[in-house]
Design a protein around this nucleic acid. Structure first.
Lengths: 241, 241
DNA sequence: TACTAAAAGTGAACAGTGTTCTTGTCAAGT
DNA sequence: ACTTGACAAGAACACTGTTCACTTTTAGTA
């Protein structure tokens, strides 16, 4: 988990004094209550005062734990990132079957995670609050999420089971995708990196469109559509069924 | 444009009396100012009072024109829908070249529209306001947008230039996609409808991910990535280059 | 053990918000 | 000429985030 202790204690990470213990406890309670309010009313309606009310404390007391509403929201965002990353890693670790089946496990887990927590998904992939900058803490879970997704891809490639790409990357694309190929998909061709980013785009797009209500009265069986589309995407990146 | 006249005038659509004329004028001014605020500060910070201040009128006066903040936001959302639909139709009408090139014109126009108006894109494809329901007025521009996108697809199919799909739709998918195949893509196979919906998903996902900042320090040339990905999608749905 | 300094919690206050209601004003239709 | 209805304004209410002064509680130390 993350540490909200502003106090500079010794090198020990675990809180030792009773004060620190109760501080972490209260911090956790605030975050839990904020998460409950977020799940119920959404991020836009998140109110420090109503959280404090439900917690039985004065509104100003929250400022001992979070610098303000934005800081609390940032903590919720970070928690959401870590939550998806955790479930994606778990899904990737427990996946079995063919390359394609193992790959499908992660998008499916992401979709189910999102369906159960629509507002947290919106926190990550919805319209960002204007002026808000993603805290650097999010790049670690983000990378974990991406790695969980491409793990079957890398395994298939190392085993020589990856079908060759059906397209050729134009000049300049390798440079444009350098951070991805270096950080997430080393030893992969530019074409594979491109296809993987396309897959990522389709996954996020599919879940967001479903969650944000764009398939009401349009796609009558979103789960089926998602599965079929994901299988198509998997085949397109070269994973064997 | 849309009519915000609550008053039930005669069958004539144009305002006749001077009162109605100035009412439409003020309504337009409010919407313009609201649009300016939206473009500057985003939807979350949209404030009736500050709009009224900049317009030189009392906050309560706005309620003669809009039922409340939500109604004003709904009008802005509807305007955003109509604006993308217009530019998409325009792009589709002016597109020339091969099937793939003509198809590419619409996603490109959508992306440029979105880059110029990020907050309006967020209004349409970002996280919806909790409890908000899309007004039925949006289905018409939404359909126009979709039709502009699939027009080259239908033309290619009618001319027999559409490559056969490389996948087979499972049982039940046709029923799940019935509203789409009936409303947008009649006379298309279920596979084509599926591929078109996948293309739609990738387009929205690509633009949203770029706009919402998910490609900072990840994809260094978003325009190039978008173009290459869209070309890949076009080829995948069967459009010839 | 007594003392001090820091942390936690409180309540009041300020500036801002959406919304409603009452009041006045002015133009249109009978 | 008069009445009706729309428009506009201002005060008021119930919220919101945030700050500040003040008190209480706790931890570490002389």
């Amino acid at each position: 988990m993350f540490s909200f202790c502003t106090r500079q204690t010794a090198v020990m990470s675990m809180p030792r004094t009773a004060r620190d213990r109760v501080r972490d406890e209260v911090t956790r309670e605030i975050l839990e209550m904020a998460g409950a309010h977020l799940a119920r009313d959404g991020a836009a309606a998140l109110s420090l005062r109503s959280i404090a009310r439900d917690l039985g404390m004065a509104p100003s007391a929250l400022y001992r734990y979070f610098a303000g509403r934005d800081a609390l929201l940032s903590a919720l965002i970070l928690g959401a990132y870590e939550s998806v990353a955790d479930t994606a890693e778990q899904a990737a670790a427990g996946a079995t079957g063919t390359d394609q089946e193992r790959w499908l496990a992660v998008p499916r887990a992401m979709r189910e995670w999102a369906l159960a927590r629509p507002h947290q998904w919106g926190l990550i992939f919805g319209s960002p609050v204007p002026g808000y900058q993603a805290p650097p803490d999010t790049v670690e879970p983000y990378a974990r999420l991406a790695l969980a997704l491409v793990r079957p891809l890398m395994e298939a490639q190392e085993a020589g089971r990856l079908a060759p790409a059906t397209l050729v990357a134009p000049a300049g694309l390798a440079a444009a995708l350098l951070p991805v190929s270096e950080g997430i998909l080393p030893q992969a061709t530019t074409e594979t990196v491109l296809l993987a980013m396309g897959a990522w785009t389709t996954i996020i797009g599919a879940i967001s469109l479903e969650l944000f209500g764009h398939w009401n009265q349009t796609i009558l069986d979103p789960a089926l559509f998602f599965d079929v589309t994901m299988a198509d995407v998997a085949a397109h990146v070269g994973l064997q069924p």
